[in-house]
Amino acid sequence: MLPDYDSLAPATWAEALAALAAQPDVVPIAGGTNVVVGMRAGELRGRTLMDINRLPELHGIRVSDGHVVIGGGTTVAELLASPAITEHAYPLHQAAAAFANPLVRNRATIGGNLVDASPAADTYPPLLVLDAEVELVSLHGVRWLPLDQFVLGVNQTERRPEELLRSVRWPLAPERSAGLHHKLALRKGTACSVMSAAVRVDTDQLGRCTAARIALGAVAPRPIRAHEAEQSLVGESLTEVTIRRAAQLAGQACRPIDDVRSSAAYRRRVAEVVVRRLLTAVDLELKEGAQA
């Protein structure tokens, strides 16, 4: 059963922003895969839903000015089908492939996943390692925030009630960079993460790490970057020793909880294992790239 609600269907971007400015408890709804589930559970976040699916400003995947830019209304299925995402954001492609199931992927949007800000949200770790930024727009103007600053806690972000998340962008990766994502869940489809991780390593011509990104999901109140682990790799070559040390630091960065899916101790331990395996695979990919 759905509770009673009012609905708006703005025809233009300006109308949508005006509606939000006038009535801050309006809940924007795109795919509805979080909002409707929450409503059924009696967690109505506002009495009025605003359908934003038809606003062209929220759609499209393009590569320009050295960035990949995608509309906040891009569905996970569209991400999965996009050659640009596969080429320029492979960890995000992997996360999209592990996202829920085909039916949910057809509805769920990247903007919805980010704004909902579940600690286990699948698209956060890959976008964090890609150095993504989100574009927040209101009648008062436009601001860009790094994703790492955008997300605050469980279902909490920097988005103000009058703002819409219009797009997400990230710079194209430099040469000699590789990234991967892995989701550890209790089953292969329609599953919430026990934990997930994404890594990305940029290297110089000698194979030394110039920058590293390690992001983890479902191990803290919000998706996190493992900064110390990242720093430990900078200036180093990827070896069994440096990878193991970085993985340990990543494990130590976790602040997990016990829940019906697993214990906190298990999450911390597998975070280390998964990061180690991802870095090892990234190393292999970089070496193969160097030989090619």
Binding site: L186, R187, G189, R261
Partner: peptide, 11 residues
């Protein structure tokens, strides 16, 4: 069924 998990076709 999001917390009581049964196998999916992928499993």
């Amino acid at each position: 069924l999001s917390t009581y998990l049964i196998p999916t076709v992928l499993d």
